[in-house]
Write a protein that binds this DNA or RNA. Structure first.
Lengths: 341, 341
DNA sequence: GTGAAAGCGCTAACAC
DNA sequence: GTGTTAGCGCTTTCAC
């Protein structure tokens, strides 16, 4: 007998293994799938052989036969702001948690980033590929209607995003409007009166945050919240922020940034223009990403529970996969007071 | 005729569509795959029908038949430091670029995060799943040997990590040792004499960075570089950094942090302990992530070209898929001088 | 240029 | 408890 793992015989499929084990392919399939009704001895023998030859049943074939793939699609639609920072921290963090959670549940994750403008068919294409059992959409971007359409005819889909009264697709997300109110209230409590919202208000989540801040301004009889649009990529955003700041210097004493990333950038620009935070201008972010603790001074922000979001997405998706109909899940935001407001 | 998209007939497969079109399944297959030798009229008819019914050929079946899936696996092994920040910015950024690059090349991306300690079989399992045409491993972690073993018998694999003389697997990565030298040289040029390396030196990349710094200290006759190990998760790292700083206060005037993330954390702790940067202690990071520009003062660091790395990984993988044998790709680091050293 | 037929690797009735 | 068989949906010779 030679010493090396006797992989001299190539085992390419269940049939090869069956021949080696002296049983039928059906039995091998049952044994490897951990099905009941297989003789303990037979099973052991088959498992030993499989191990020895490093054999694993082909998931494609199995998937085709069983009409399920064990794969969940995760798709990130990139809206108008195509070059949106690829590493957008929030989405990437969510993706990390999703990967963990799906793995825990025995699913694989197929990731797709799409540009809806170039491919209006992005969602159907993914669903229709036959490669995935269900889909998680990260961010509605500007594709709300597209998603609604699909939701009517396709069950196993859950979306991370903003909840709108009466919508038909199942969504998981933070109560952005409430979060926006919290941010604005904090800015005002810290002494601000003339508030600006920093960030693009086109995406629904951001629009809701903006609306929440506006709610508060209106209720308290303060001037309306000023919208200061920016892109999401750091380079462009920095320039835009600098321009906004110059244009409105002195007219603003509170800034509610749409995300922590934007807030951090803003902090840098404020310092550059010699504006003291929180003395001259109060500032809040949104998300509570790690960076929020590391800015100088550390950022007051509105926390989203990303881990809970990921768990919620996967939990709801699995329930839908099992045929349940599910309600959307709206998570509560939490104000984290640090030093910028 | 009724108004709605006449999706009354469900088209579940190529055979259904063939029936509608009055042709054979084979012809439909050819038409939809864009093969030559199909009558223009026939092709148009089939394409129109497919569009009308939102039909798309099942990729699983196609994959099974053609013995290729159009999917590239991307796996992130989480070493000993299991709870390594899920959102580890560097890997996540790389992942984003990989997603773009693979999409551009017409491939889908299947993502898997694995804990080798709990599953020694992680790599074979992924490869053997039959779901992927090739695999990109992000980070060697402490799995160098495992990867070497696999490389002997499996071609389409490329790894992001550190290059070691004579290794057998194809790797793409920055010249970490050179980067380490650059960082140390900069610290010294800025006036430091007693240098410490902040971070775990177990992963090969970090070990190489440390070794590079050590090279410089040795060459210049300075005291050896002190290793200050930490975990990667922000919470633990902060504590550990604080402890290191207290223990070695005054004995260190230059810190080379293994990553920008660690450097940013370190900066916060230094400030907390009233140590001025760069006056009392010089500091450099590694990576040049966005955060490096936003710390106060902004971080001097060693830049890795992540986009080039992603392109390299995909390019080499596709070449190997095509049967070529490829050399590893070592990318040059670049010193970015800001204000901490 | 198109149809017929075999088969990718696996699973699930259905026999026995 | 195990073998046999018929596909899952697609592609690809091989005929014609």
């Amino acid at each position: 007998m030679d010493e090396d793992k006797s992989t001299r015989v190539m085992v390419r499929n269940i049939t090869d293994l069956a021949r080696l084990a002296g049983v039928s392919p059906g039995t091998v399939s049952r044994a490897l799938a951990g099905k009941s009704l297989v003789n303990a001895k037979t099973r052991e023998k088959i498992e030993a052989l499989a191990r020895e030859h490093g054999f694993r049943p082909n998931q494609m074939a199995s998937g085709l036969r069983r009409q399920k793939t064990g794969v969940i699609g995760v798709v990130i639609p990139l809206g108008h702001d195509t070059r949106q920072q690829i590493s957008d921290s929030f989405f990437m963090t969510l993706l990390g948690y999703l990967a963990d959670e799906l793995t825990r549940q025995g699913y694989d994750l197929m990731l797709r980033r799409v540009v809806p403008e170039e491919d209006s068919d992005w969602l159907d294409r993914f669903i229709g590929s036959g490669m995935i059992d269900g889909v998680i959409v990260i961010g509605q971007s500007d594709q709300f209607d597209r998603i609604e359409d699909v939701a009517d005819g396709y069950g196993p889909m859950v979306v991370w995003g903003n909840h709108t009264e009466g919508q038909r697709h199942c969504v998981v997300g933070t109560d952005n409007r409430l979060g926006g109110r919290m941010a604005a209230e904090r800015l005002i409590a810290a002494g601000a009166q003339r508030i600006a919202f920093l960030g693009d208000t086109t995406p629904m989540e951001f629009a809701a945050r903006f609306a929440g801040a506006q709610d508060v301004a209106t209720r308290l009889g303060l001037p309306p919240v000023l919208a200061l649009p920016t892109h999401l990529s750091p380079d462009r955003a920095s320039e835009e922020i600098a321009a906004h700041l110059s244009a409105h210097a002195g007219a603003i004493d509170g800034i509610f940034a749409a995300t922590d990333t934007l807030a951090a950038l803003c902090l840098t620009e404020l310092r550059g223009q010699g504006i003291a935070v929180p003395r001259d201008v109060k500032l809040t972010g949104f998300d509570d990403l790690p960076i929020a603790r590391q800015t100088v001074p550390p950022l007051t922000t509105v926390r989203q529970d990303i881990a809970a979001g990921a768990r919620g997405l996967v939990d709801l998706l699995l329930r839908r996969l099992a045929g349940e109909t599910t309600e959307s899940l709206v998570l509560p935001p939490e104000l984290v007071v640090r030093e910028t407001a």
